[in-house]
Nucleic acid binder design. Structure first.
Lengths: 229, 229
DNA sequence: GGCAGGCGTTAAGGCTGGCTTAAGACTCGT
DNA sequence: ACGAGTCTTAAGCCAGCCTTAACGCCTGCC
């Protein structure tokens, strides 16, 4: 998943970055409310983790601003216990969940899973299913029928996105964002190569090309082949 | 197992440390409530042994703080008999068990086994089973099929953790925590070497590598080798 | 029908990270 | 003090991953 972390405590932020990236996410980090709002308006994220006390523009204003602009990205708010009363305002302003500092990293993981609505309750590993595809989102293990594979990072990111939006078109741009966040700069046909490799695993018909736009995952497509070489 | 001991009586603490380490555990020790809460929020422990009278932050506050942060680690509370009435509050606050000082080390061991819920019912030796693996957690004896061996400490720690979380990813970080706690500083490929030795015992396919992340125990993996030809 | 642009396919190169092995350091019991 | 068993370190190897680039195909447009 692509996550935006907005947190001005650099020490805490770094801990969270490490944890989130370890969990196979592409994470971008800002420590400033103004920039955060701009980023939210111009790019796509699957989740925002938003501290309330920020320089330049308060977290709540970021949230409200984004929502007013029609942005529905799931948001988890971080807040000090002293600001408890603000939380109500926070939920009113359109946050999906909140966490009071200090919090346990495990708890953050759980909330993320809850908010993104995958991995039902149980603290076990989260898994997405689409058709006969089963993708373990914490280990990147993929089951196609009864064949098993561990996806490399890039292929995982792509397939994960496609499976989160089955039947919807994923633009090339969107997929590249998922892969690189802001670090990118990759100007090549890398994406097509990854898609190629994915199709080899998943069955050719499962990922359909929309010429000039991007790709779609076809939930109904059946594989037919399981290469094994 | 990785255990956090929070106890400000240094003499008692040292005794307990020795005993717990004797039993193959990795134990970290703090004598201060504030630090304990911080540690609990940022790291993973399998068990906390918590004295109630602590400098800076009372034991009960540590417990409550941790629980509010969403931390579900099993906790055993230590308390002087004079503070008996507090115990009820202790259980209310989310402790799993308590022990009144002075106590026998054997008693503590028993409580630990009970709280960590391994070694069902009878106080006989605790044993974990996953697939065809059977690990005796008190002796470190491993049965693979009908072959048996006694694991050295490091390999035991790793396999024990993997078997407690079969099918889930164990990050390198997590495994190193299990091995060293805070004493570490070990910057090397030691973990990989241990994994290598373990695979030799347990079958290569049983421990799967998740590149850039860690390892998973595959419960279904058989000792032989994968078919596919 | 020819052309151009987008996409598929394949192979090669660089690189990272894990695997393997062997050698020394250490511990502990005898 | 010695030896067996254990842990760490280091070095070289290997495999897998990502990107790049070349080439061919397909599609749609003129």
């Amino acid at each position: 998943m692509r996550i935006l972390l907005v947190e001005d405590d650099h020490l805490l932020a770094r801990t969270m970055l490490d944890m989130l990236r370890q969990d196979q996410n592409t994470v971008d980090w800002l420590d400033d409310g103004q920039q955060a709002l701009t980023a939210l308006n111009n790019e796509h994220f699957d989740l925002v983790i938003l501290d309330l006390t920020l320089p330049r523009l308060d977290g709540l204003d970021v949230l409200q601003g984004a929502r007013q602009a029609g942005n529905h990205t799931p948001v988890i708010i971080l807040t000090a216990r002293a600001e408890l009363n603000e939380k109500l305002t926070g939920l009113d302003a359109g946050a999906d969940d909140y966490l009071t500092k200090p919090f346990a990293m495990a708890e953050l993981k759980a909330r993320i899973r809850a908010v993104t609505r995958r991995g039902h309750s149980a603290s076990g590993d989260a898994e997405i299913r689409v058709g006969q595809l089963r993708l373990n989102t914490s280990s990147g293990q993929l089951m196609v029928g009864d064949e098993h594979a561990v996806l490399p990072r890039s292929e995982f990111q792509i397939l994960h996105y496609l499976m989160r939006h089955p039947g919807q078109v994923a633009t090339r741009r969107r997929l590249e964002e998922q892969l690189y966040g802001w670090d990118s700069g990759a100007e090549s046909n890398a994406l097509e190569v990854h898609i190629h490799h994915l199709r080899r695993r998943v069955g050719k018909a499962t990922i359909r090309t929309i010429r000039g736009v991007g790709y779609v995952l076809d939930p109904d497509a059946v594989t037919g082949d399981t290469p094994c070489h």
